[in-house]
Design a protein around this nucleic acid. Structure first.
Lengths: 207, 207
DNA sequence: TAAGCTTGCGTGGTCTGACCACCAAACATC
DNA sequence: GATGTTTGGTGGTCAGACCACGCAAGCTTA
C-alpha cells in the first residue's frame, strides 16, 4: 500500500539520511525525536524505531534514553565488531581481510614517502621516545594517518578492526617504526616497503 | 530493568547470532518467525523486529512477506556499499577517491600476477577478441575480479562507481588490456605495474 | 483423474495506545 | 544561594489489532 515495495522503515532510513545531508547536521547534533519523526513522516512510531535501530546498529546514530537521538561521529565504526562476529567465521574472508590490510598499509607507506610534509613525522618520532602510555599499534596508526588520504585510512581502520576480531595482531615494534619513519622522512619508499614486507613475512621469530 | 543496560534488541541480535552458529544454519535457511522468537525469548514482537530490521539493513538476513525470514549469504560484503553511502559524501574525500582507486587497481594487478591460475585470463583474452558488445571498462573489471580477493574487488567497484560521477573515466584500451593480461599470464608484475602506471600518468595525449 | 479455484493459515508489515525508565530544566522549598 | 521536588519530553518495551502476501490443502469443476 505505502507506495509500492518500499518498506516503510527503509524509506525512513533514506529520509533521515537526506535530513542529515540537507540540514547539514554534524556529529553530536540531535535529530528529531521518534514521535516527531513519526508525525512528520506520517508513519507509525514503530517504523521510525525500526529505522533508527538499524542505523544505530550501523553506528551512524546514538540514542540516549531520556535525551534523544544524536548523530554520531561515524569515524568510530562499531558495527565492525558486530559484523565481524557474523562474517568472520568464513576462513576465505579472513584471508581477504588480512591481505587487503597489508596492501593498504603498503600503499599508504608509499604515499607517505612521496609526501614532502616531514614535520608531522618528526613529531611522532619525538612522542615515541617520550611517551610510553600509548597502546600497541597506536603509533603505526598515526603514521598511516599522515598519508593524507583519509579515505584509504578509514578503509584501513575498518579492516584493521575486522582483523582484530579474527586473529592476533602482530604490532610493529619500536625499531620497525623508527625505521619506517626514517624511510618516510628521507622519501625512501623502497626501504619502507622492505621493512613492512619483512614484518609480515618473517616466520614466527621476532615478536 | 531487563538485565542491566543491554537494550533488548541488542540481546536479540546476539541470540540470533548464537542461534545461527549453534544450529548450523546456512545461507538460505529459514530462521524462526518473529512471533516464535518473541515467544521463545520472552520479549515483545516489536523488539524482535527492531533486531531483525537492523540485521536486514546490514545485509545479514532477508525477509519475504508471507514466507519468513531467511539467512543471507553474507560473503558479498554488502556493508561496504552502505558505509560508502554515508562516508563518501564528504567532499573532502573526493580527491582521495581517485588515488585510492588507482592504488587498489595496482594492488590487485600484483595479486593477479602472483596467482598461478591462468585459464581465467586466457578466457578473457579470447572473449576480448571475439566480442564487441561489452562496455568500456568491462574487461578491466573482469580482469581485476580474478585477483581472488573479493573484498578488495568490492571496494574497488564502489570507489569506481563514485569516481564515475566525479570525473571522466579514462578506460583501458584493448592494447593496454592485452598487455596487462600478458603480464599477468607470465607473472610479470613489474610489467603490469608499468602499463598501469603509464595509463594514469601520461598526460592528456592518448584518449 | 486432472485442472482450476477457493479458503484458511502462517508470515511479515504497520499502526496504535499504553506503560516504564530516564534526564534535564523549571519550580518550590529551605 | 543551595537543595529538593515536580513536570514534561525522550527513548524502551510491550500487547493487540489489522493488513498484505504466499502457500498449500481441500474443494469444485471439467
Amino acid at each position: 500500500m505505502n507506495s509500492q515495495n518500499t518498506k516503510v522503515y527503509l524509506g525512513i532510513v533514506e529520509e533521515i539520511r537526506q535530513l542529515i545531508t540537507n540540514s547539514g547536521l554534524l556529529p553530536g547534533d540531535k535529530i528529531p525525536s521518534e514521535r516527531t519523526l513519526s508525525e512528520q513522516l506520517q508513519v507509525g512510531r514503530s517504523s521510525v524505531r525500526e529505522a533508527l535501530r538499524a542505523l544505530e546498529l550501523l553506528g551512524l546514530i546514538e540514542t540516549r534514553r531520556g535525551e534523544g537521538t544524536f548523530l554520531r561521529d561515524f569515524k568510530n565504526h562499531d558495527l565492525i565488531r558486530l559484523l565481524g562476529m557474523f562474517i568472520l567465521q568464513e576462513p576465505e574472508v579472513k584471508k581477504d581481510i588480512f591481505q587487503t590490510k597489508v596492501m593498504l598499509e603498503r600503499d599508504m607507506l608509499i604515499l607517505i614517502c612521496k609526501q614532502p610534509d616531514r614535520h608531522q613525522l618528526s613529531k611522532i618520532l619525538r612522542e615515541m621516545a617520550s611517551r610510553n602510555d600509548l597502546g600497541p599499534g597506536e603509533f603505526f596508526e598515526r603514521l598511516l594517518e599522515t598519508s593524507g588520504n583519509r579515505l584509504m585510512f578509514r578503509m584501513w581502520q575498518i579492516i584493521r578492526d575486522y582483523s582484530k576480531e579474527a586473529e592476533v595482531n602482530r604490532y610493529f615494534g619500536a625499531e620497525e617504526l623508527k625505521g619506517l619513519i626514517e624511510a618516510a622522512m628521507s622519501g625512501n619508499s623502497n626501504m619502507a616497503i622492505s621493512i613492512h614486507h619483512l614484518h609480515y613475512h618473517q616466520s614466527e621469530s621476532g615478536g
